[in-house]
């Protein structure tokens, strides 16, 4: 356990020196919050079914942070470690390869959490953020979305030949996810065609689930979303285990 926490600590240090991750996981969500928060405020509005714009948007922003660490940082780091034979080097130590993988997941989970806490603090201070749901259910949803999106990240790391390919795939998946899942822009302002596209984006289900619970619904009202996310997790985790190459 001491060994595992050491590996995670080093990974976190490295993440803290990586400008791109820091920017997209910590700064960018706060910037989006400030931008849209200033534009729409947090007064209850009809557009948001009687909720404030910030209260209705923050759950999506949380999902956006999960996508950054899960779709970008996680696969890029793993692909880079494989390219540079760092994974291979670790394999000839007494550490089990799975520990290295898990430490990556842990470090990115902690980064996601840090990004979320920063976002919530800013939203509370600047826009007086409200939470209407059940904390335990929100945590459960957070974990499910996180695992599901991270499994996609692992899959990207598994199928990409090198770091360059991983970067390309990650960008291709990440940016549509960012704009078409409802994570940054509410889906209700989009035309039918875009909404139907959003249905094939995994994160959409995460945003719906998180937003629903945040605004007071029960997780039981979102069985479709839970099933889709669980299915994604099962599918991509299995594929990753089968396809992942250490060198």
């Amino acid at each position: 356990m001491r060994r595992f926490s050491k590996v995670v600590t080093v990974e976190l240090k490295l993440i803290s020196r990586d400008f791109l991750t820091l920017f997209f996981a910590l700064a960018f969500p706060v910037m989006i919050l400030l931008l849209f928060g200033t534009m729409y405020g947090n007064e209850p509005s009809e557009f948001n079914d009687g909720f404030g714009a910030v209260d209705a948007s923050v759950p999506g922003y949380i999902c956006m942070i999960i996508a950054v660490t899960g779709i970008m940082t996680l696969p890029l780091t793993l692909a880079q470690y494989r390219d540079r034979k760092i994974l291979k080097r670790f394999m000839i130590t007494p550490v089990k390869p799975m520990e290295i993988l898990l430490s990556q997941l842990a470090a990115n989970t902690i980064t996601t959490f840090a990004g979320m806490i920063l976002l919530l603090i800013c939203a509370k201070i600047v826009f007086n953020l409200h939470f209407f749901g059940n904390v335990l259910q929100a945590i459960a949803a957070f974990i499910l979305i996180l695992l599901s999106i991270f499994s996609i990240g692992l899959f990207i790391a598994s199928v990409s030949k090198n770091a360059k390919a991983a970067t390309a795939i990650a960008y291709i998946i990440y940016f549509p996810m960012l704009f078409l899942s409802g994570a940054t822009m509410p889906l209700q302002m989009m035309p039918e065609s875009l909404i139907s596209i959003s249905k094939i984006i995994p994160l959409t289900y995460g945003v719906e689930l998180m937003k629903g619970i945040w605004l007071g619904s029960s997780i039981a009202d979102y069985t479709t979303q839970v099933l889709v996310l669980g299915g994604i997790l099962l599918l991509f985790a299995t594929l990753s285990v089968k396809l992942f190459k250490w060198e």
């Binding site: 050491k6 080093v10 990586d18 470690y81 540079r84 080097r89 130590t93 007494p94």
Partner: peptide
């Protein structure tokens, strides 16, 4: 073991790398 052409993590410092390897062994 010293493997051919291994490089290390971006932005890792010498003591961090050594420390990391130290925790791996009995």
């Amino acid at each position: 073991v010293q493997l051919q052409e291994t490089s290390y993590q971006d932005k890792i410092k010498v003591y961090e790398l050594c420390d990391l390897f130290m925790t791996m062994y009995k």
